[in-house]
């Protein structure tokens, strides 16, 4: 198990040192800042759209980080070593995904309340919004990992990764933004939260297997 945590730690350290964490958070704020320019500074309108906008920006920030998941390891030969580590490749992959989640998604979620403030969300709206993001974001990382692993052997495959991942993001987006929209009414949407958690759980079971298969294919 210590091997698993070592992989997770390595990915976190590299994401942090490479400035990926800072970039992703900056991306979130830039995205949110652009919204009033596009939609007008009317506070009521911004608040009505805020949950959906925050989901879109969160997904965009995550999508731009996906090519860092395995691409560097493919290029510098670490992927070869991952095949030989004393841990099944599926778990190695899971360790990296967990590292990615902790180094990128958690900071993004921490930034969401502040970003929500810029879009006129009241503190009362935040718990439901964050709950939905917490329930749905594991699925985002796991499913994005599938796209990243399929495109890993493609030079500058960032855009391809986005194209491959987006169809997988549609369900998470629908239920995530839907549940968050209920936050404005001050309601807890248990059904959609449950579906989000179910999507995350299903991705947790399926994604590492698919990603490991794609990576084995990439080192051929």
């Amino acid at each position: 198990m210590s091997v698993f945590w070592a992989i997770c730690r390595q990915h976190m350290v590299l994401a942090w040192r490479g400035g990926h964490t800072t970039l992703a958070v900056a991306f979130l704020f830039i995205g949110v800042t652009l919204m009033p320019f596009g939609l007008g500074p009317e506070l009521a309108l911004l608040q009505a759209l805020a949950p959906g906008l925050l989901w879109v920006v969160l997904i965009m920030a995550l999508l731009t980080s996906l090519d860092r998941l395995f691409q560097a390891d493919y290029e510098d030969g670490s992927l070869d070593q991952m095949m030989l580590m004393p841990l099944p490749l599926e778990l190695v992959v899971l360790g990296k995904l967990l590292g990615h989640y902790m180094a990128l998604v958690l900071p993004l979620l921490l930034a969401v309340p502040l970003a929500g403030l810029l879009l006129n969300l009241a503190p009362a709206h935040l718990p439901m919004l964050l709950l939905a993001m917490l329930a749905g974001s594991p699925a985002l990382v796991l499913l994005g990992g599938i796209g990243a692993s399929l495109a890993v052997s493609v030079r500058r495959g960032g855009l391809l990764t986005v194209l491959l991942s987006l169809p997988f993001y549609v369900p998470v987006m629908i239920f995530g933004a839907g549940a968050s929209q209920q936050a404005l009414a001050g309601e807890i949407d248990e059904t959609r939260l449950a579906i989000l958690a179910l999507l995350s759980l299903a991705s947790l079971l399926a994604a590492p297997v698919a990603i490991a298969a794609a990576l084995r294919n990439a080192v051929r």
Partner: peptide, 27 residues
Amino acid sequence: LGYIAIWQAIEEPTRAARTAALLAIVG
């Protein structure tokens, strides 16, 4: 479009075939 793009992006034919097949299945 993603499926077609995979075939175009990967030069090596065996790898392209297997990657595209994997995408077809999860897709």
